[in-house]
């Protein structure tokens, strides 16, 4: 492959992935409203298009036409920067996720991954850890007490859960002996080799921490509406608010993608093409996310910290130790 070919193919891949993720985010909101609606014996959005399928588009148009409000005592530069700092890391995650097997298109061999880094999983964690800045800075720069409290809560929560989050996948990495996401998928060729069966404890810890990391219910204290209005994005409106919203859903999707790749065998599966399998698994994971949101009440702050530091963290450490011992023997 020549340099120009590489540049062209990579650019196309980037455009396709970004568009797919943005569409995915839009329809994740639709899925959430629909599912939560049914969980609560309602119908959910059903007026815009068949099954309310055009609802996300209507929402987007509405948000674009809203007025962009900047509070008087906001720190202007940081205030403008925060949504971007939330949005970009969320999108960057998808650069290393393998969506499918290598396919041949117009005589070119194309990997279904934007960039096959050999430290893929570390890249994901590095980028995820940068995502907290958007939230912290949004809370700090808005010049509002609700935003500030939301921002502080969120940063404390994300720092606390990042430790257990990182440790929860160590078991998988110890078994697989690689950081490359492609290689991890390749090692899960048959269902019995899926890491969910070899690392059940790691999987459970990963899912809990992932929900906390993405600030989703029942860990959505940073935006607890009964106490903090809407938390760190209280003062944001229009497209800036939309960027936070898209960022949150993109984070959910990327966490689901990583869970699929690490624990559920990635794009591996019988009969159907790999990409379809991948999408099915991600949608399954998103549904679990929404299901949990519709079922569980919000935790208290001290319960949250207790769970993170005194339950998940020791459990994750123990899991790494036991796994390493077994691998070593």
């Amino acid at each position: 492959m020549t340099a120009t070919e590489f540049a062209i193919i990579s650019s196309i891949k980037v455009v396709v992935v970004v568009l797919a993720v943005l569409t995915g985010c839009a329809y994740a909101t639709w899925l959430e409203r629909k599912l939560v609606g049914h969980f609560q014996h309602r119908i959910g959005p059903n007026l815009a298009g068949p099954f309310g399928l055009l609802q996300p588009i209507a929402d987007a148009i509405k948000l674009i036409f809203k007025e962009d409000i900047v509070p008087d005592n906001a720190e202007r530069v940081t205030y403008a920067l925060a949504p971007i700092l939330m949005f970009i890391p969320a999108m960057l995650n998808f650069a290393v996720v393998p969506f499918g097997d290598t396919v041949t298109l117009f005589g070119h061999k194309i990997d279904m991954v934007v960039s096959d880094l050999n430290i893929g999983i570390l890249f994901v964690f590095a980028v995820t850890s940068l995502g907290v800045y958007g939230i912290v800075l949004a809370g700090w720069s808005s010049g509002s007490k609700y935003s500030l409290l939301g921002g502080i809560r969120s940063s404390a929560q994300m720092i606390s859960y990042e430790v257990a989050y990182g440790l929860s996948i160590m078991g998988v990495l110890v078994i697989a002996q690689t950081f490359s996401l492609n290689e991890l998928v390749a090692q899960q060729a048959s269902v019995w080799h899926w890491f969910i069966f070899r690392q059940p404890v790691g999987f459970v810890i990963y899912v809990i921490c992932a929900i906390a990391e993405t600030n989703r219910s029942p860990f959505d204290l940073p935006e607890a509406e009964s106490e903090l209005v809407a938390g760190y994005h209280t003062e944001y409106s229009s497209m800036r608010f939309a960027m936070f919203y898209i960022g949150e859903y993109a984070n959910m999707i990327s966490v689901s993608c990583v869970a699929t790749t690490l624990f559920l065998g990635g794009w591996q599966g019988p009969f159907l093409p790999p990409v379809v399998w991948f999408v099915i698994k991600v949608i399954f994971f998103m549904s679990v996310y929404i299901w949990i949101r519709a079922t569980l009440p919000r935790l208290r702050y001290d319960q949250l910290m207790y769970l993170g530091w005194k339950v998940l963290f020791p459990l994750a450490l123990l899991n790494v130790m036991v796994t390493s011992l077994i691998v070593l023997l």
């Binding site: 590095a126 995820t128 850890s129 800045y133 912290v136 921002g151 940063s155």
Partner: peptide
């Protein structure tokens, strides 16, 4: 040295500086 680069981001940019910001905000 990709590994070192990733660690630099995870440890310093992702954790330590968040704590800095946290203290400044508090």
């Amino acid at each position: 040295a990709v590994f070192v680069g990733a660690l630099l981001i995870i440890v310093y940019a992702g954790a330590i500086l968040v704590l800095f910001l946290f203290v400044i905000m508090l």
